[in-house]
């Protein structure tokens, strides 16, 4: 009774299940500025959607969620357009390079091994670093707030890293007002290429790699990171949706629409939650989520699957 047929996926789904799934992922998207593809696609596959259709329809859904999220964050002044556009250009370039790279890897027969290991290492490294750094920062805040004003010292200027020094030597130095940082325009461009390559290899949108890159390498404030990341994801997913529709016919609009109804609402609530949380709190929750996905992936690698055969395609 509460089922809807998906003409491109060729199967039927429970409406409330998909709406709920969209809502949860949209909520995460609004809170952390990630597309949620790394979470949604495996869940859709688990519910019987063919992998290629799950990945493509999810991109379509992310367009809606990130529009909703970007709009909400834009109103809050959390979108750095200049930074977002540079990262986007870099991401598109990187994605193109990454797709060629994966073709070479597939021909050598080691692609899947490398993808799985890269995925787990990347998630483990990013998640752990973010988790402990935020934890440390939260503890400092706690100590700081309990210290009498007379004893408090002036904030210590962070020492520039080797990466920071290197990037400081690059030309086209410019100021990113919304982010409150000054750097070469080439820095976000290069980092965008790097994230684009990784995202193409791993077959994901790249939001959960982009967010830590913006926080730790571009030194952007967390709330601006979330808004800018959503802005960039919006354009990446528009491109993916149109390309997948045109070349592979794998976008199931009915599935995307159901997910969309859930995720656009979820993204709005997510933004509301995001606003109430401190930057470090946001980081620590995202880090926990990333680590959870890493553990789930690791289990997938260590535990024998119920069936050794599966349909090819997807992430």
């Amino acid at each position: 009774m509460f089922h809807m047929y998906l003409p491109i996926a060729g199967s039927s789904v429970n409406i409330f299940l998909i709406l709920g799934l969209g809502g949860i992922v949209g909520l995460l998207s609004g809170i952390f500025g990630v597309g949620g593809g790394f979470l949604m696609t495996p869940l859709l596959i688990m519910f019987g959607i063919p992998p290629t259709v799950a990945a493509a329809s999810d991109s379509n859904q992310i367009v809606g969620a990130s529009t909703s999220g970007t709009l909400a964050h834009y109103r809050l002044g959390n979108v750095d357009m200049k930074m977002g556009i540079l990262l986007l250009i870099g991401g598109v370039l990187g994605g193109t390079i990454g797709v060629q790279f994966i073709k070479i890897l597939r021909a050598s027969g080691h692609a899947d091994f490398l993808i799985s290991v890269t995925y787990v290492i990347m998630l483990g490294f990013v998640g752990s670093y973010m988790f402990f750094e935020s934890l440390q920062s939260l503890r400092k805040d706690k100590v700081g707030s309990s210290t009498p004003d007379s004893i408090k010292t002036a904030p210590v200027e962070k020492k520039p890293s080797i990466f920071g020094k290197l990037m400081g030597t690059l030309p086209f130095q410019t100021e990113f007002v919304k982010s409150g940082v000054s750097m070469s325009a080439l820095t976000p461009l290069i980092l965008g290429v790097f994230v684009g390559i990784l995202a193409a290899i791993m077959g994901v949108g790249g939001g959960f790699i982009m967010v830590p890159v913006m926080v730790y390498l571009l030194r952007m404030p967390m709330h601006v990171v979330v808004g800018t990341s959503l802005f960039q994801i919006l354009f990446t997913c528009i491109n993916v949706t149109i390309m997948q529709s045109y070349t592979n016919h794998t976008v199931d609009f009915v599935l995307a629409l159901l997910l969309l109804l859930g995720s656009t609402v979820g993204a709005q609530f997510g933004t509301k939650i995001s606003k109430r949380l401190k930057g470090d709190q946001l980081k620590i929750i995202l880090a926990s989520l990333v680590l959870l996905v890493m553990v789930q992936m690791l289990f997938g690698l260590l535990m024998a699957p119920t069936n050794l055969l599966s349909y090819a395609g997807g992430h």
Partner: peptide
């Protein structure tokens, strides 16, 4: 397929704006 892709994107953007 191209028109389908563009319409899918436009509807998604529209839904995002509407919710916003």
């Amino acid at each position: 397929s191209l028109l389908y892709g563009i319409i899918s994107v436009l509807i998604a953007i529209g839904a995002g704006f509407f919710m916003g």
